[in-house]
Amino acid sequence: MSEAVKNVQKRGQPIRNVNITDITMNYKQPPSAIVSILHRISGFVLFLALPFLLYLFEQSLRSEISFAHFAGIVSHPFTKIVILGLSWGYLHHFCAGIRHLFMDNHMALDKDASQRTARYVLAVSLALTVLVALKLFGVF
């Protein structure tokens, strides 16, 4: 047992759990932790965005008139930025999910390999998002 823990126990204070400020400010999070929390946040944000996305999907498919309406909505720069943000969320969730599937099959489970694959997830999802951004803003 370390000296710090002993000292705390001597003074009769309970050992406290890790709290939110420890997670967000005091400790540097490893790549795997960042991927993990972004996986959860992106999943939740996509869940909240479901009505917006289904509405766009509906407008794009129902008729030529609704398609023109859909095209009008998504050509607005603000909508493009929202869609780009959701695309990043989706692509991150996608890549992090594939990493999970590999780990379920006992691949890349040790400390170094898991941090390396976590970095790949962050990099690949950002690269794919850049591709989507270029396409969305009409570069190619």
Binding site: P51, F57, E58, L61, R62
Partner: peptide, 13 residues
């Protein structure tokens, strides 16, 4: 509700 909505969207094409 989303599942029902999806069916409606897909079969309106």
């Amino acid at each position: 509700a989303c599942a029902a909505w999806t069916v409606q969207i897909l079969w309106s094409v």
